[in-house]
């Protein structure tokens, strides 16, 4: 394929990855920012979202859109409840101690994976997209006949992939409104800045933490529901989203929600675009080192404030 169309294609693919990543990472960013804990089980909440989406779509049957919409509502809700319960049962009892949270959430990760393996099974299971047309994209060239438009081989995207991008933007906007314009957001931000002070002002900090943990997991699950018609639900699928969102949150700057979005877009897009220029595995190596170098030279992340 010529360079121009190739770049466009890689960018579009990168944008889809970035959209899902932004949602998943936003979930982790909120938890990280407000509660200051590393949730190793975050990827498993993503996986649970995809698996529940399959169950819902499978049970409902009928037109794929019915199952998909139901999944978009139920999967994040269920996952949020599971996460909030885990917060109550485990994290609250260990008082969000950083080290113990790591071991505890690794334990949760094992439990969730094993239960999924026993109930859902080891196969990768597809969820049908509500709509999925292949959209060919035209390209232009200045040939002998001057400016020409043509349809390059392979340059296309599907309508569903475009929908993922749009849906992610809509959901993130809604989240932004929630965080900045509502009382819930105010309480969350107050808890983030100084949980002691918030408690003094009558904020039920414990309950806020449970909600935040649920919200974070729900966002990951929602990202998974969006992506599951493209990928498939599989009990080990949480691994990569965990690592990537973890990276995104740190690169963006701890606790900075705009930073998280910017970093997600950067990492998602660079993954696609670097692959245009290098052989695939070499591209991955370079993209990985690039991320490391960003932090080496800007340890506080892109949008983070340097703490003294």
């Amino acid at each position: 394929m010529e360079f121009g169309p190739h770049l466009i294609l890689a960018s579009l693919e990168g944008a889809v990855i970035a959209a899902v990543l932004a949602m998943t990472a936003m979930g982790l960013s909120i938890v990280f920012g407000i509660m200051r804990v590393v949730n190793v089980a975050h990827g498993e909440f993503f996986m649970l979202g995809a698996v529940i989406a399959w169950w819902v779509a499978h049970l409902l049957g009928g037109h794929p859109a019915v199952g998909f919409i139901a999944a978009l509502v139920f999967a994040p809700l269920l996952v949020a409840i599971i996460a909030a319960t885990a917060d109550r049962l485990v994290l609250q009892r260990i008082d969000y101690d950083p080290d113990r949270t790591i071991v505890g959430t690794i334990g949760l990760l094992y439990i969730i994976q094993q239960v999924t393996l026993m109930t859902f099974g080891p196969e990768a299971r597809p969820v049908e997209a509500p709509f999925n047309q292949r959209l060919a994209i035209p390209w232009f060239e200045f040939g002998e006949n001057g400016f020409e438009i043509y349809w390059p081989w392979g340059l296309s995207i599907t309508s569903y992939k475009l929908f993922i991008i749009v849906a992610a933007i809509a959901i993130l906007t809604a989240l932004w409104v929630l965080m900045t314009k509502t009382k819930i957001g105010l309480i969350m931000r107050a808890t983030q800045q100084d949980s002691e002070m918030a408690r003094a002002f009558g904020v039920p900090v414990k309950r806020v933490y449970a909600w935040v943990f649920g919200l974070g997991a729900g966002l990951a699950a929602m990202g998974a529901v969006l992506v599951v018609p493209v990928q498939q639900a599989h009990y080990l699928m949480g691994h990569d989203p965990l690592l990537l969102s973890f990276i995104v949150v740190i690169i963006g700057g701890l606790g900075s929600l705009p930073g998280t979005v910017i970093a997600a877009v950067l990492i998602g897009m660079s993954d696609g675009i670097i692959s245009v220029f290098f052989s695939p595995t070499l591209a991955k190596i370079l993209a990985t080192l690039l991320v490391a170098m960003v932090l080496v030279f800007r340890p506080q992340g892109l949008m983070g404030k340097l703490r003294s």
Partner: peptide, 11 residues
């Protein structure tokens, strides 16, 4: 562990 492949097909 790649989950998205389209970007490789133009090659």
């Amino acid at each position: 562990a790649e989950t998205s492949f389209t970007k490789y097909f133009p090659k």
